[in-house]
Design a protein around this nucleic acid. Sequence first.
DNA 1: TATGAATGAGTGTTCATTCAT
DNA 2: AATGAATGAACACTCATTCAT
Lengths: 206, 206, 206, 206
Amino acid sequence: MEQELERDLIDRGVLVDPSSARGKLLTQAARLFRENGYQSTTVRDLASAVGILSGSIFHHYKNKDAILKAVMVEGIHHTMARMRRDLQRAQGTTAKLRALIACELDALNGDWGDAMAVVINEWRFLSDGGQQDILALRDEYERMWLDLLVQAEKERLITASPKVLRKLLYGAITWTDKWFDAKGELSSDQLTDAVLHLAIKPASDP
Amino acid sequence: MEQELERDLIDRGVLVDPSSARGKLLTQAARLFRENGYQSTTVRDLASAVGILSGSIFHHYKNKDAILKAVMVEGIHHTMARMRRDLQRAQGTTAKLRALIACELDALNGDWGDAMAVVINEWRFLSDGGQQDILALRDEYERMWLDLLVQAEKERLITASPKVLRKLLYGAITWTDKWFDAKGELSSDQLTDAVLHLAIKPASDP
Amino acid sequence: MEQELERDLIDRGVLVDPSSARGKLLTQAARLFRENGYQSTTVRDLASAVGILSGSIFHHYKNKDAILKAVMVEGIHHTMARMRRDLQRAQGTTAKLRALIACELDALNGDWGDAMAVVINEWRFLSDGGQQDILALRDEYERMWLDLLVQAEKERLITASPKVLRKLLYGAITWTDKWFDAKGELSSDQLTDAVLHLAIKPASDP
Amino acid sequence: MEQELERDLIDRGVLVDPSSARGKLLTQAARLFRENGYQSTTVRDLASAVGILSGSIFHHYKNKDAILKAVMVEGIHHTMARMRRDLQRAQGTTAKLRALIACELDALNGDWGDAMAVVINEWRFLSDGGQQDILALRDEYERMWLDLLVQAEKERLITASPKVLRKLLYGAITWTDKWFDAKGELSSDQLTDAVLHLAIKPASDP
DNA sequence: TATGAATGAGTGTTCATTCAT
DNA sequence: AATGAATGAACACTCATTCAT
């Protein structure tokens, strides 16, 4: 199911084929950037992770910054594609909100979790130019959230302002990267519910 | 009032006098580490920010890592002192919870906001030894939060588990560093309330 | 003849080809270390002596210590190869002893004299790890001396204990590095005889 | 006995009083220079060894080079004084030669051994000016040896030329610093005899 | 004499990037 | 595409020396 989604994006040229040389490089870069940070990961580290020499990296990407940007673009595209699909499938505002939260949480844990973690944690190391280029993508991404929260506000599901709530939720969700362990006591579903209930209080029993 | 608190800590040797050479260095280091990140801030940057030459830095601190650690220790000590005081002043669990949230939010905006932001964002760049040393301090800090949330759970003010809720709140609060502007439309008080209501449902109108 | 010996060692990978980049670096390093000492020779000195920039040094050797170690290994290997060959050629204990003395004296004056002088004079600047690695080589080297001196003792050619005599001879021989001039009045042969007669009383006239 | 010799030299202003501040500094400098080498010993090391701060060193000596020179001057003066005395006491050329050897060996092991070891091992780190100044002292020292060896040659006690023999003996003797242990199996007396027999072969039994 | 903060040139080392092969 | 030697600017850190107090 997930693979279908990916295949489609690759075929349309949005994502890089992960079995290609560039794709392998991106996968390893995402992993290394997440594990050690962008600045602590050397071009040599990247090269040796994919089995080539450092000089060869620059046949694939102009410079290190371009690799960081490419990792981020992959991460955002992938997450957005899933969000669009899951949003459509869910019925009702609360269900849709739960879907978005689940997507964003899973984005940090699933196959493309490395890339999305890089978007969040290494953002400030992306060059100004790179940030500009990606900002449009992020705006589109955020609009999906805001539109839904505005709807939730109309339905009086939430009390805080959509903009503020979104940012608080974003912080809470992205920080899970630092502490949540999918194999621990707390399940992904329980975590999703916990986050959902930050925004929406469960209907009290009468 | 705030200054009294600080003066006391300085006199007791917990904090460095900010008017001393070491103090000035720490203040500037906190600012630069926050603005540009630990790794992107060079020792020469630090030196020129306090008007000395790079070699002189090492008369005050053994190495760059020691400066990072000192900044963090300052930040945590300062925040903890305020938390202890405000916790005592507040009456009732809800008020105490609001006090902790306010402290943590202010910790990122007040005079020592730079240092506290460094604790959060540059943690992984601190050497293993440094992390060990500070961990005890952080534990003490987190215990204040957990004890209060456990109490809130007993009083059925919160529904999520204290541990999970603390981490979600921590993420939401620390992320404000990236978007909240004290001079913007949203006041500090309003932000504090918004965070409080992530944890506690506002009392319903009778 | 000497060149054959060298060529063989290079082909077997024991020695570095002196016409390669690494080899040139080693030759110059040996010379500079001998002339100015290890600590007084900067990496920049080494680089400029072979016509590259300082950063490029580290493509060939991990660090400065590795260069020192490599110089020493070259020196010892070269000297040992000559000692083995000349020992085999000489007939009789006295002739063999003279051969060893000549080898050790020449080791400080010939093409690889710089490297051997570095072994003697810069030993204490080699890292502990490096010393460990080379110690095995030195042991092998010293065993050749000791075995011969033990034989000489059996034949009553020498009176002092082999161990003590070896050390006294070692000091006398290596110190020639500081005063002996091959182009001076005293010839190499005469010097060799002088050292030989420290150990062995010249045959009395009948 | 030894102390009388020292006291006399101190009173005549040749040596520095070891109980004075300068004297303590020199004693510690000799020890540190011997143990770690001149270049590896920092001015801070010297200062902390005598319990002062680094800046204060320069009230006693103009610079680090002056300390090295002072250590060497002490060492040579002390050794020469002993050599003069013991030479006078000994009767006969062989006895005198044995006395000189004993003096030079003891110079490396006795109270002033550190200083004399520094003369030998750190010589090349002394500035050119410093070397010039000390050379006269060393010449005087060496003349005592040469005069005696010339006499020994006349008496046909030795076969090698006095100049060459002196240098070979110097090498053999100074190298003992690296291996001889006064508490080991070999006694000082035995070592002295061993060195003596490098120069003079014991009369063979008829 | 002693202090200790400051100097400033210098050290070994790193690393993204280039380029002839 | 890939190599790998070379670049060169930058880095954290060292240390003999100075000097106002």
